[in-house]
Design a protein around this nucleic acid. Structure first.
Lengths: 213, 213
DNA sequence: CCTTCACTAGTCAAACTTGACTACTGACTG
DNA sequence: CAGTCAGTAGTCAAGTTTGACTAGTGAAGG
């Protein structure tokens, strides 16, 4: 699973009703272009695809109010909201070495209850630990780890990543347990999208150093 | 850049001449199916694509010696070898948050000189540090980091990952500087591929727990 | 006034990835 | 000795991602 669906669903959901450019702008506001594959093509594709699958409802095309081609507006359906929650839960628990998925989930975690998030994150820690155990058991040759030569560095790298991932998750659990942030049903939610006429403080930047892929 | 091209080029290169299934088997031997998108479709696609681009030379199709359809054999071209070295150097230095790319590069790093690898890895550390600096400067709002709310956890996660990535790289540099592993031109190279009739000790495994993407 | 720039908004072809599928051989099993 | 299983080898359609492109508006500056 890539992060794009979760991101797009979440953006449309917070807006109530959104056109492609709005979603695109939100994702940029969240910095998502830095850590996920949230490029125009992917976003518009995801919108169309999810509309086709009934997760979004596409409204009639309206002439753009601000230049450019006419734009379609999307609204999340009940099915889409369910999918959103499903993806969100999965992304918080699964350890799939895809940091973009976790990042997206962090952005939306406050849409769930505090207690549930804690459970999901604890599940995540367990998943990581199991993964680590199975990998170290399985890829440790009988002749001892030295036999792997430099290939062992690959394993070492993965195991180290898993360990710090688990450690970080434990820290997050503590912060949340300690009362940080405002979760579902705890009053005044955090506003995570830009209003129609709000300027984007992190506007399209040549000011970011491009990542060097 | 995905890791698949580097992996496939490297596999063909170590064999001298290889057909698709051999490459596929090597990648599995290296555990690549656990940490990269090395699935049959991707591998065969990469072989064909790179043959089209002149990085590999495709030999005539020969009837398979062991069941299944006839198979094409590939050999790396001079252009392909150059591309391999280029990808390898890039993958060792670039910090693009794609762990599979680094893993692949670790597997092939001994094809370069020890000194060069040390330089590349030091460059990597510098790249990570710069990235970290630019991100923290850029995404710290004037009102202080608290203003970000739970969104700040995304940044925290990325920064933590960058820091442990840098730390791990420094450890690797030390090990290599300390004389670990056998690099290009240092005698007896490490054998990283399976011979024609060698059994794969890590054969296709239902024994791995599937990752839960 | 008219050119250029920045922004809004979205499209498109080409490349890549995925997961399921075909097809053949040899070995075991009842 | 037919049936099934594991392994060998690769294809394919559907979906996704990429990067470059189109096209319109409005404001600034000469």
């Amino acid at each position: 699973m890539s992060a794009i669906r979760l991101l797009v669903l979440g953006a449309v959901r917070q807006h109530g009703r959104a056109h492609g450019y709005q979603v695109r702008n939100d994702l940029e506001y969240w910095g998502a272009h830095e850590w996920s594959n949230a490029k125009p093509g992917s976003i518009y594709h995801a919108l169309k695809q999810m509309a086709k699958q009934g997760l979004l409802h596409a409204h009639e095309i309206a002439p753009s109010t601000a230049g450019g081609p006419p734009r379609a507006e999307y609204e999340i359906t009940e099915q889409g909201a369910e999918e959103f929650r499903k993806l969100l839960r999965e992304s918080l628990t699964a350890y799939d070495q895809k940091p973009d998925v976790l990042s997206a989930a962090l952005g939306f975690m406050v849409d769930l209850d505090r207690e549930e998030v804690l459970e999901l994150l604890e599940e995540r820690v367990r998943t990581i630990e199991e993964w680590r155990k199975s990998v170290t058991e399985y890829y440790t040759p009988e002749e001892g780890p030295a036999q792997l030569g430099h290939i062992g560095e690959i394993m070492n790298f993965w195991v180290t990543s898993a360990d710090t991932g688990a450690q970080w998750t434990r820290g997050l659990i503590e912060r949340i347990r300690g009362g940080a942030y405002t979760f579902a049903g705890e009053g005044e939610p955090f506003i995570g999208v830009l209003g129609e006429d709000q300027e984007n403080p992190y506007a399209t930047g040549d000011r970011h150093p491009e990542d060097d892929r």
